[in-house]
Simulated scan of single mutants.
Amino acid sequence: MVATLEVESTLTDRYQTTVPETVRLALRLGKRDKIRYTIRPSGDVVLTRAEAFEGDDPVLGQFLGFLAHDITRHPERLLSVDAGLVQRLQSLVGGVEVDLDAALSADDE
């Protein structure tokens, strides 16, 4: 039978916590590493080390974080895309084929 190790940490007034040393060691976490939280339908939360990809763009990541924060704070600002706009876009680019693996030309860089 596999033993389960349980550890605790406390939330501060600002909802921050220190990751316990046993968890940091188990996940091989260092300073500035990212943590991923997976919330299961049962309500259980699984904590894992978020792996950074070499192609990750820190500026894009910050922008996406900003968008996620703004959407969370102001969901009423979200608007759906209407069918008319979708049809217009398809009429403009519907037949265009794109090779996402092709190198960019000097003009596109």
Score class of each variant (00 low, 15 high):
102 A>I: 08
99 D>R: 10
93 V>L: 13
98 V>W: 06
93 V>H: 10
11 L>S: 04
43 G>V: 08
74 H>C: 06
51 E>P: 00
45 V>S: 04
1 M>S: 11
14 R>Y: 04
13 D>M: 07
94 G>M: 10
8 E>P: 00
54 E>C: 02
77 R>L: 12
16 Q>F: 00
18 T>K: 11
83 A>R: 14
76 E>L: 04
97 E>I: 10
79 L>G: 08
37 Y>M: 14
55 G>R: 11
108 D>I: 02
61 G>M: 15
44 D>R: 14
92 L>A: 14
91 S>I: 02
81 V>Y: 02
99 D>L: 07
49 R>Q: 12
89 L>P: 00
76 E>C: 02
93 V>E: 07
97 E>R: 15
21 E>H: 04
50 A>L: 15
74 H>K: 12
21 E>T: 13
94 G>H: 07
12 T>H: 02
4 T>V: 14
1 M>E: 05
25 L>V: 11
45 V>D: 04
66 F>E: 09
21 E>S: 13
65 G>K: 05
27 L>I: 06
96 V>F: 04
96 V>E: 09
69 H>N: 10
88 R>F: 08
41 P>W: 05
29 L>R: 00
6 E>D: 04
67 L>A: 07
41 P>Y: 06
104 L>C: 05
22 T>R: 11
91 S>T: 12
103 A>W: 01
107 D>C: 03
10 T>S: 09
60 L>H: 05
9 S>K: 03
17 T>V: 10
62 Q>K: 15
74 H>M: 07
107 D>H: 08
107 D>Y: 05
102 A>M: 11
104 L>T: 07
6 E>K: 12
31 K>S: 06
67 L>V: 15
89 L>H: 05
66 F>N: 04
51 E>S: 06
80 S>A: 10
49 R>A: 13
94 G>W: 03
38 T>S: 10
12 T>V: 05
1 M>L: 05
24 R>A: 01
